[in-house]
Design a binder for these strands. Structure first.
Lengths: 218, 218
DNA sequence: ATCTGTGAAGCACTTCACAGCG
DNA sequence: CGCTGTGAAGTGCTTCACAGAT
């Protein structure tokens, strides 16, 4: 049985809702209530979440619920975190320490989820050697040499569009198998490498299509 | 004929590739080459782009190509920008001027695409009244009063998870019909309001599923 | 009575394949 | 001959609906 990629994409959202329920001290939740708590999908597909989809998605991995009762919040959360590989530390390197890179280094949301930034690279001479958020910035030219010494699981690309593809290529050569790309480009990577794009402009540009019709003019 | 939301989501990526081709002085592109330039989808669905999909997507909106030649880069780009509503200015308000909010205010990528930040809100007394990137920060408590005076098309939410839903509710009450949410929550908004989430942690958590299998241990 | 797990049905998007135009 | 535009076929995800467990 092969698991659709779309299902994998939804699991982190499930895990987050469960963490929130757990914080509130809730022990049990039904697929029905779960679907309501998932709110609106933040992507194009504007279909609401359904209880059936939650049950079906979970059924790919096992039988986690109790008929007549629902799902144990804590247990299901632990299962999902295990399925997603979140019960360990992941080591990340950030390339590009401009405004965006600084914000990424300072972001407080990674560590509690087990994502740790262990290296920072930039090519600007007045940044190399500087200490930023407890990290010594290294020269991007030394990326490949450094990553031969230090294991890094995930590369974060925060350089300008012009140099992004070559940085991605370098990361791939170093054996990095997952890339989080903040640069506004359509990157090319081998099939064996995971990549996700974070691009607020693309998100905005798909919303304006729907606004356009009834928007007041500028 | 009804246009799938998934098609709308792809159009901004098409527009971006065309802009890049235009920069390089290219006049014409075939659907085949176009698909290759689109690189890897940065989402779960790991299927490659196909020439047929590009042609099909474009055909929802008109007949923009020339048989035997391909598509005129400039013309197609203009068409797409018009379809997406990108040939005008969009006014945005940022709520939450912490580290993330600061980075958003300073981000250079919005303005060239026609997205202008015209208001900034925070609830912290030592930020209210301060000038940040040419903007006077207002009190979040005055959000509704301010947006009665100044038109804002899009709300950007950069507050902590705990207060995000209430900020979103306030924006919706003000008639804001599109929201870009950076807070790590599953937000609830009416169907008439567009919402997109920017969440690097969710992106990371879906990649680790695929890394898990063969990753070296920590 | 309630709610899960799941084959089967339904549906929506993608891909095919070719007519038709330049 | 090359490449678009597009009905039709194919595919894969979603929803249905109900048996089965508590």
């Amino acid at each position: 049985m092969t698991i659709p990629d779309l299902v994998i994409d939804r699991l982190p959202q499930y895990a987050r809702v469960l963490a929130s329920l757990d914080d509130q001290g809730r022990d049990v939740v039904s697929s029905q209530e779960f679907a309501e708590l998932l709110g609106r999908r933040g992507d194009g597909a504007d279909r609401p979440w359904s209880a059936a989809q939650v049950r079906k998605d979970l059924s790919y991995f096992g039988r986690f619920g109790k008929q007549g009762r629902g799902y144990n919040v804590r247990k299901l959360m632990d299962e999902l975190r295990s399925i997603l590989g979140l019960n360990r530390q992941w080591r990340m390197a950030v390339v590009g320490i401009g405004r965006l890179g600084h914000a990424i280094l300072g972001y407080q949301g990674f560590t509690p989820q087990g994502f740790r930034i262990v290296e920072g690279f930039d090519s600007s001479p007045h940044l190399i050697g500087q200490h930023v958020d407890g990290l010594t910035i290294r020269n991007t030219a030394d990326l490949e040499a450094t990553l031969k010494e230090t294991r890094v699981d995930i590369g974060i690309v925060a350089v300008p569009a012009e140099t992004a593809q070559s940085v991605i290529d370098a990361l791939v050569r170093c054996g990095v198998r997952a890339i989080l790309n903040y640069a506004p480009i359509s990157a090319r990577v081998p099939k064996s490498v995971q990549i996700r794009h974070v691009d607020p402009v693309l998100a905005l540009q798909s919303m304006t299509y729907y606004l356009k019709a009834s928007a007041t003019l500028d």
